[in-house]
């Protein structure tokens, strides 16, 4: 069952309590295990003792319902975009997106392919981009620490942005997903 209502406009929260909340959020980032592109292979060494992402409180979760972060690990084919939107909207607020690789930034080496998106920014609100093709595990950790910093400062507001500009994003998404059969609001 879906909630078939437009999302409410999230209010702006400020003050001490929000700061403490943000601190807590930043230190336990749980990641949806969804490898959408080649970058996924460098996420697995991150879990081993060598790079050890759990020391930052980052853990992989099997389902989007338990996670806060969605990693777009590379190019997105139009067929995947549909699933990614679904996964993203199922994550509970607050949620963040990290995009890996030059493919998400400007299309990378597939800029002229008929089946991969070029600029991910038009379809989903990305908080942190990590450049490289493919980014090394250290770079991914760097991206995570940037995200943490942004959350602590209260700047990682991509999810609010998505709700406020839902029409803009939907219009772009529907333009390339020709057989749109998702419910319009599936939170």
């Amino acid at each position: 069952m879906y909630c078939n209502q437009r999302p409410e406009k999230p209010g702006v929260k400020k003050g001490m309590l929000e700061k403490i909340n943000n601190m807590a959020r930043a230190n336990s980032l749980w990641v949806t295990a969804y490898g959408t592109g080649c970058g996924a292979i460098e996420l697995r060494p991150l879990g081993t003792s060598r790079f050890d992402m759990e020391r930052f409180g980052i853990a992989m979760r099997p389902t989007p319902r338990q996670a806060d972060v969605l990693i777009i690990s590379g190019y997105l084919a139009t067929k995947t975009l549909k699933r990614v939107i679904r996964v993203y909207e199922q994550i509970q607020d607050p949620k963040y997106i990290i995009a890996l690789g030059s493919c998400t930034i400007n299309g990378g080496m597939y800029f002229d392919s008929y089946n991969t998106l070029n600029v991910l920014d038009k379809y989903l609100p990305v908080d942190v981009y990590v450049m490289g093709c493919m980014p090394r595990p250290e770079a991914v950790i760097d991206g995570f620490s940037l995200l943490m910093q942004k959350i602590k400062d209260g700047r990682a507001q991509g999810w609010k942005h998505y709700k406020e500009n839902l029409d803009y994003y939907r219009e772009n998404q529907k333009k390339i997903i020709t057989d749109w059969d998702l419910p319009d609001y599936n939170w």
Partner: peptide, 15 residues
């Protein structure tokens, strides 16, 4: 089928 034109039309031009 011209993939570059198609991509440009659908996903926008590369900057």
């Amino acid at each position: 089928f011209l993939t570059e034109e198609y991509s440009m039309k659908l996903y926008g031009e590369r900057q």
